[in-house]
Write a protein that binds this DNA or RNA. Structure first.
Lengths: 217, 217
DNA sequence: ATTACTAAGTTCCGAGTAC
DNA sequence: TGTACTCGGAACTTAGTAA
């Protein structure tokens, strides 16, 4: 919506239909719409000036009809809301705010032993760097719990031990070569999520620190 | 609709979905909704006080979620509009204002030669009297043109000639034992339609002179 | 009976600012 | 960074009327 007098327009659509002429009057409408006759008079004029309705004086009031412009607007409005009702009803998602890349992930992404496992398990060669985002710790846990787990194993070399990490395939808008990674023993705060992908996500999605992102399952 | 801040609520539904928590802030929303941070702040409080959203302060802003009350309201809103889009898209109708019974029809309804034809062609015995309504002359013609014609024949007795009339089955709300009659040579103004039915319509539908009616095909 | 103008009353918005 | 308060002005509504 975001259109002046849209509420009245919707009411008129329900009263008159989209392609019908409708005999009514400002007084009648004011009773039905719970406002004054003067307000209806003004609103009808505004709707007419904006090309949303057509009016003709009639034997006792006004004959009015919604224009094609109104029909399009209303159809569009309904379509948008239908999407919300259907797709979003049970869609899993997680929102957060892009933050600077201090996560552990960047380190993992430089080690061939990890990279090989990513390639094998995710089907893409990850970009050398992670996109970090701050989110709600509890939500992050709940979100990842509901997704199929891809386990990336840790390993040892002569000097030290490298920990394993959890990995989950997710989506960002329509982009689905994307995985959320959560180190098994992370040293940074767990309100941060890390994303890996074959592309440089900051560039691809024009992201800056503070940009809001919404990842879905 | 007719609900305060409904516009913002719809926006939030599109942004956050119906069952999801959503990380955002008053500033972010103010940019997206084209108003000030203060206005969003107030509107969110109002929505919260009315039980349409729930909010929790979060690491950098607010986590918000629509309540079940919002979901119901929005679903209802969409349902109503869907009805408009589907049923009303090509529904034929005619609106008018009940007027006093000075039409010719009352006379016809008293003559057995006509009554027999009505019974045969319409399947009901008409109430002795017509319900007259004023409407737009052109609309009346256009409406009746699109309906199947039932012809009621005129006749002669020793004294004079009685003219024929056109008859069309129509509906008033869910009531469909109803016919619109148009005398072939009418003496009254043709912006008046006449309805016959087995019942006394004024009583059945609590109609007075001036009441608006909408008949459909 | 309408519609619509003006003027006054009311609501709403946002800049400034506190926290 | 955030949210939310105050308050002056803008926007909207309506009573009284004219046409």
């Amino acid at each position: 919506m975001r259109q002046k007098n849209f509420g009245l327009l919707l009411y008129l659509a329900q009263k008159c239909g989209l392609n019908n002429k409708c005999e009514t009057s400002t007084i009648e409408l004011s009773h039905e719409f719970n406002c004054s006759q003067q307000t209806i008079s003004r609103k009808l004029r505004e709707l007419q000036e904006s090309g949303f309705i057509e009016r003709n004086p009639s034997f006792a009031g006004t004959e009015l009809m919604l224009t094609q412009k109104s029909a399009s607007l209303i159809k569009n409005h309904v379509n948008q809301l239908q999407k919300v009702l259907s797709s979003n009803a049970n869609a899993l998602n997680l929102t957060g705010k892009v933050s600077s890349g201090l996560g552990e992930g960047n380190y993992y992404m430089s080690l061939p032993q990890y990279i090989k496992q990513f390639e094998k398990n995710l089907g893409f060669k990850p970009f050398p760097g992670t996109l970090n985002f701050k989110t709600n710790q509890f939500e992050l846990e709940e979100f990842s719990k509901k997704l199929p787990l891809i386990e990336i194993k840790g390993f040892k070399d002569k000097k030290r031990t490298f920990g394993g990490l959890k990995c989950f395939k997710v989506r960002l808008q329509n982009y689905d070569d994307l995985a959320l990674i959560i180190p098994n023993r992370s040293s940074h705060k767990s309100n941060t999520g890390e994303l890996i992908a074959p592309d440089y996500l900051r560039e691809k999605f024009k992201l800056k620190n503070g940009s809001r992102i919404k990842i879905t399952a």
